[in-house]
Amino acid sequence: MNAVETLNPTNLAQALKAKANKNVVAVAGGTDLLVRLHDRITQPWPKLLILENVKELHKITVTKTAITIGPSMTFSEIENSAILRKKALQLVTAAASAGSVQIRNRATIGGNIANGSPAGDTIPPLYVLEAILELSSAKGKRTVPIEKFFTGPGKTVLKPTELITAIKIPNRSNHGFFMRLATRKALAISKVSVAVNIIMNKSKVESAKIALGAVAPTVIRATLTEEYLRGKEINQAIIDEAARIVQDEARPIDDIRSLAIYRKEMVGVLLKRGLESVTTNG
């Protein structure tokens, strides 16, 4: 754990220049990275790029059409953002339910995405909010829809020379929920999570977007369930059937946190609870 080199840029241009060296690992809040590094105390550490002082990455900007979230925004800041509470409640709920106060005060949304865990709590909300990621390197930038970002557990299309520099979601009202299940309410990684964004036309579902966390190698959309709900008038029978369909869309595994059979069952339960709450709240 000795002889570590850190780079501490004060602006984005410096940070991207430092990241051009692909052996540099970016550290934002460090709540995932330092746990991983702690476990490999005897191996050499990578060179760490501290993003703490890069102010460009630490803000929310709002236009008529889009809300742009800086990747260094912490879970606490997302939890307390007035605009996100109004326009992205799924994301706010997810940020508020992860970790502990101490973790939320440090963990960032960009870090949660870059970490690439299928159990990352902000990811299902970002799927149903149709987030677009801006990835930048010293050479330029590109945009990637969040659903195209992940390629497997801990694996993403982010190149070693790139940083996530913005997370963009449409600026519009939406209806929906985020629910998770874990061993305890605080400080436990999700066994299962479900995020939904639903547009109602009077009493009928115009469209529903459903994302499932921790039940596949990446967060996935439940497209068959979405298709089933489209145009339907929501009632208990429809909700029960949607909960049945969504179970078959989950592709969970047995691991240290839970069993596949339980996860499948619980995906249905969470969707059911959420849809019931959405429809009773209007």
Binding site: N8, G30, L34, V101, Q102
Partner: peptide
């Protein structure tokens, strides 16, 4: 850290600049 509780085990010392 800036008025907010954090786990000092998960903060790199240079991050307190």
């Amino acid at each position: 850290m800036n008025g907010k509780p954090v786990n000092s085990c998960l903060v790199m010392a240079p991050q307190i600049e």
